[in-house]
């Protein structure tokens, strides 16, 4: 009982979303905290990823929403583990997969950048589509 409370506090303490790079570990954490996974596939060469990372994912409102509902897995497509390549059909960047760790199922996918307010609207829809109670 202590572990979930502790990790929940960790990711919320800084008002920041927890970003991990290991998919399996993120699945465990997400299950424990009752959150979904947001797998962010990006490339250093894509200007639209730059936009997401500098202005959208770090937007205070986006960040607050993500930290409450999702665990982020950040994957560089130029350095992607084979297991993920097989699991998800990432044909471009930025590519975001919303994933239910309990059912092991993709909830939704998103290709391309968005502005912060549009992105929050999308996150809210995805949260409703998932089996999370607090959306």
């Amino acid at each position: 009982m202590l572990i979930p409370v502790l990790s929940l506090t960790l990711s919320l303490a800084f008002g920041q979303a927890l970003w991990l790079s290991d998919f399996d570990k993120a699945v465990d954490v997400a299950k424990r905290e009752g959150k979904n996974l947001m797998i962010y596939f990006s490339s250093d060469h894509c200007p639209y990823c730059w936009q997401m990372e500098n202005y959208v994912l770090v937007d205070p409102d986006v960040e607050r929403y993500i930290s409450d509902k999702f665990i982020v897995v950040s994957v560089d497509v130029d350095d992607m583990p084979e297991s993920l390549e097989e699991k998800f059909n990432v044909f471009g960047t930025p590519y975001i997969v919303f994933y239910d760790p309990k059912r092991g199922k993709v909830i939704s996918e998103l290709f391309g950048s968005r502005e912060a307010d549009d992105f929050i609207a999308i996150l809210k829809q995805i949260c409703k589509k998932s089996n999370l109670r607090r959306c």
Partner: peptide, 18 residues
């Protein structure tokens, strides 16, 4: 501007920190 998932919606957030 390709979109696999278009989810137009309303946002009533205030951007206090900005």
């Amino acid at each position: 501007a390709a979109t696999l998932l278009v989810a137009p919606g309303f946002v009533g957030q205030s951007f206090a920190a900005k």
